[in-house]
Design a protein around this nucleic acid. Structure first.
Lengths: 342, 342
DNA sequence: GTGAAAGCGCTAACAG
DNA sequence: CTGTTAGCGCTTTCAC
């Protein structure tokens, strides 16, 4: 049946009004070149005709997409879901569109997403690296292209790429000092891969506190793995089976702590009585846990806006930006775990 | 300093190899026109030069973007975060890109996002409508353009637009029948706006069950509001203050149930002893709640794949598709609430 | 097998 | 203030 009409173009509007395409283009973008009355008229017919600018065409000729690519390892996760929502908010306010991609902790997918974003010619990239990111060649190329890229939370390399991270070491240090003050001596760590910044830095803070207080670390009570609940679960079970459970466990992330909670329950160990815990990062879920987990936390919307402003600045400098690093303050929040042992 | 190099184009590759742009274009897309050896050579230099196709240019000339727009009311939410992740998965497998936008339950933002997607010339749209969506004019236009659009979970109008919804009425009916069997008689509902399909249909199931069992509904124990935790909280407080708390409350969503839990706690009412609840929808959080909330639930990845397949089919028919409606089965899961009253 | 020509819809640069 | 010219980078004919 229908006449399968193509979308309205500037040209369609121009013809209808007996003006040139350029005039329409300018009017629609409120260019001062065009008189107010004409602008109004043009806008009206554009509206009537149901005109929507063709971004592909616009991008092609203007070399600007007003689009920022965002890559996160997971989205069904308190931290990432909230930071992504906050980034969307910033983008909306600044008239940018976001292209969101989820790497699912998979370096190959991360690569694919990066390539897609390069093909989309995004104006900038915001990324939290996957567990074992092996895409430094692309990142290098991005740097060479002077395409703004900002890593957040999880970086691949602190010096070459702009980043906004948490005070991972300091936060962990503070947390562990508190643990020690509460009388714990046998303190273990279910940590993250040591090829990731958060894995390394949070472990570093842990070590520093232990060293300062002259406590030795039992290597068998330290496991490095991923950042998810299953990692926490499996690591706990492993320590348990090998009889290496300490009195206290410091978990690298909230999901890992959650895995520990589950594993402890399954193994019949009570938290915090039999074994106590603390973790890096919080979750809404923590409000409903019994016991709730004491944790090192931070402000998510500050984090998001810092990240967004950084890319935005770099975009605005037109390829003349410097690599920058920022840290977001963390705070120790004491809840039902890690309470005074007596 | 640097020579601010522009991205590599087909032309660059062509010149280097002394062939035409067209040849390169075809080779890169594995067109059978081009010999295998040439194709291989072209791909190699493309790789070396760091070529990334310019999607804007490609879209402009091919009229296809391989992109699907997804709009959800919230993302920091168990249901939506997971379904979005599942949709991403489907898209990835089918070589589609996703443009995700979050309306934040705001009709105006929803409209803006829709417009953006139209300007991006997405091949199809997947949307879960915001609380009070007032964008039917755009939806109508989308239909007129024969642009595939599929509503999921929250629709605006069941007949004119393709949709995949839950068996809202049946699920609620089943749940309430169970409540009644457990001996409850004074059953209230903290429901959703009646201009939304889920608000209406879940209430309808509730009414149907009550009628069937000859129980009367106390209008003061029924409140219609939004789908978030704060809505559940406020509604409970209202009923409490007005002394209209029933023995049992059916919550429209999991977040609403959560709000009820909080409000009940704040008001010193024990669940399920003083007042018992059930809800539509589940959450990972439910595993940690004490008591956990019995609920009507469903399979999220089935849901996502049904939705995705539907848009994909419609896209593949090249504008010759019919409006379709599907429903996803729901199941009553009994946990710690809504247990036999004795 | 390969390529020349034309055009997708828009905007930047420059005239008038 | 308005319009002309010239692409942006790619793909789709269609000719060779």
């Amino acid at each position: 049946m229908s006449k399968n009409k193509r979308p309205i173009t500037l040209n369609n509007i121009a013809k209808k009004l007996n003006v040139s395409t350029v005039t329409v283009s300018k009017a629609l973008r409120d260019h001062t070149d065009i008189s107010e009355s004409l602008t109004k008229k043009i806008k009206k017919t554009a509206e009537q005709l149901g005109y929507f600018p063709n971004f592909a065409a616009r991008n092609l000729s203007s070399k600007k997409t007003n689009t920022i690519g965002v890559i996160v390892p997971v989205i069904a996760n308190y931290f990432f879901a909230n930071i992504v929502e906050a980034i969307y908010e910033c983008a909306f306010e600044n008239n940018y569109d976001i292209i969101l991609a989820v790497s699912q902790e998979d370096s190959k997918k991360e690569r694919k997403h990066l390539e897609t974003m390069l093909s989309m010619r995004v104006d900038g990239i915001i990324i939290s690296a996957s567990e074992h990111s092996e895409n430094e060649d692309i990142f290098k190329r991005i740097n060479k292209m002077k395409l703004p890229i900002v890593f957040f939370d999880r970086t691949i390399n602190n010096s070459d790429y702009s980043s906004v991270t948490l005070t991972n070491k300091e936060g962990s240090f503070k947390a562990i000092e508190n643990v020690i003050k509460n009388g714990y001596k046998k303190i273990g760590h279910i940590g993250g891969w040591q090829d990731s910044n958060i894995g390394r830095d949070r472990y570093a803070g842990f070590k520093q506190a232990m060293r300062k207080h002259k406590l030795s670390i039992n290597k068998n009570s330290v496991i490095f793995s991923g950042f998810g609940k299953e990692d926490g679960y499996n690591s706990f079970i492993k320590m348990y089976n090998e009889n290496n459970l300490p009195d206290f466990l410091f978990a690298i992330t909230f999901p890992v702590a959650l895995g520990i909670v589950e594993a402890a329950k399954d193994m019949g160990r009570k938290i915090p009585k039999d074994i106590d815990i603390i973790c890096f990062g919080d979750s809404d879920l923590n409000n409903y846990l019994k016991p709730s987990i004491s944790c090192v936390t931070h402000n998510i919307s500050d984090f998001a806006s810092k990240v967004f402003k950084l890319v935005l600045n770099q975009i605005d400098t037109k390829k003349n930006f410097a690599v920058k690093h920022f840290e977001i303050e963390t705070e120790l929040i004491l809840k039902d775990t890690c309470i005074i042992k007596h």
